[in-house]
Design a protein around this nucleic acid. Structure first.
Lengths: 186, 186
DNA sequence: CGTGAAACTTGCCAGTGACAAGATTGCGCG
DNA sequence: CGCGCAATCTTGTCACTGGCAAGTTTCACG
């Protein structure tokens, strides 16, 4: 337990990102306060700016981490498209804070190199899953299929997080998602 | 042209909502500033509070208007499920400001009566469209089908708005949506 | 006409993001 | 070993925001 010393926190960047993840989960990405993060990490109110420049910089780092994690998650379930979709929804629910930042590009620097790379990896994982399933169809078909698969998984996840779905869908996101996602593959 | 007079604007509530719609389109719902709205309407910084209580109150009114508009839009294309889906996506793109507020319940009062009513109307329009198409199936099937249809349309719309879709989908949302939504009905 | 309520204003406070300038520390290089 | 320099962090400040309180103006209705 390396507790907080004066000056040279040692791992401030990571500590701030961890605090940011908590804070986003509590109040959402837009209401995030840099000064609150600083308090949580036990540093002064201007310390975060040194590591991330500004709020957008911090959220950019968070989004990149999120896309990276999503890419790894999707790669694991790559052989089964239905399970990849379920994994996508599960990711959104389990790592809600990441997910909420990732798809709100107006809050971060969408032209960040590291972020673009991580997002590309996630997209590739998705597309390869679709290609594996649809077999040797034309690339244009794969394009449309992956767009459809992504749309339905993303839509369900988003609606779930927004609490917009009717009560009858239950409280088990994986199960509910599986039932809905199945509609695509028939 | 009833220009702004001192005291008793006459139609401040409506003027503020209109200004809010513009402002949301420009900076997003989270970055909305009540004081900016007041300036746009030519009133003092505390005038909005009188009509809406606080920021959440104003966004509640906006969201309710949005759900009402969506319900009417969906009702028009009710007989054709595919076209209803296209209309949903089109609504999101055309009335982006409404759409972005509607599905961010943490920003407004989700228990508002008027809002719940409007949202119910939109949901009913969606469900009736699905029921009409799937014919005399079991209600449980209709449930799942409408969830799937809603998910794919909502997902595509959300991804489109977030700028997350690859460039190859083009710049015509209706056309692109139609291609993707077709995957569901086959 | 006049009175009470509705609509709007001015004034204030705590909190926030961003910036500037200063203090402290550790690391590399002689 | 020690010294200078750059990275890290702090303190101080400014403009802006949301929300509240109290005062002012206007309208509606008896």
């Amino acid at each position: 337990m390396t507790d907080t010393r004066a000056y040279h926190h040692g791992d401030l960047r990571r500590a701030l990102l961890a605090a940011a993840l908590e804070a986003v989960a509590e109040v959402g990405p837009a209401a995030l306060s840099l000064r609150d993060l600083a308090r949580r990490a036990g540093v002064s109110h201007a310390a975060p700016a040194h590591h991330f420049g500004d709020k957008a910089g911090l959220l950019t780092a968070l989004a990149a981490q999120g896309f990276d994690l999503l890419a790894r998650t999707l790669t694991e379930a790559d052989d089964d498209l239905l399970e990849a979709g379920v994994a996508y929804v599960d990711f959104a629910v389990t790592h809600r804070a990441y997910f909420e930042v990732m798809f709100r590009p107006e809050l971060y620097r969408a032209d960040d190199a590291e972020l673009i790379a991580a997002r590309g990896r996630a997209g590739a994982a998705l597309r390869s899953g679709v290609a594996a399933l649809s077999g040797g169809g034309a690339p244009a078909d794969t394009d449309r299929d992956s767009l459809a698969a992504w749309s339905i998984a993303h839509g369900f996840a988003t609606l779930w997080l927004a609490g917009a779905l009717p009560d009858r869908v239950g409280d088990n996101p994986r199960e509910a998602a599986r039932a809905v996602l199945r509609r695509l593959s028939t």
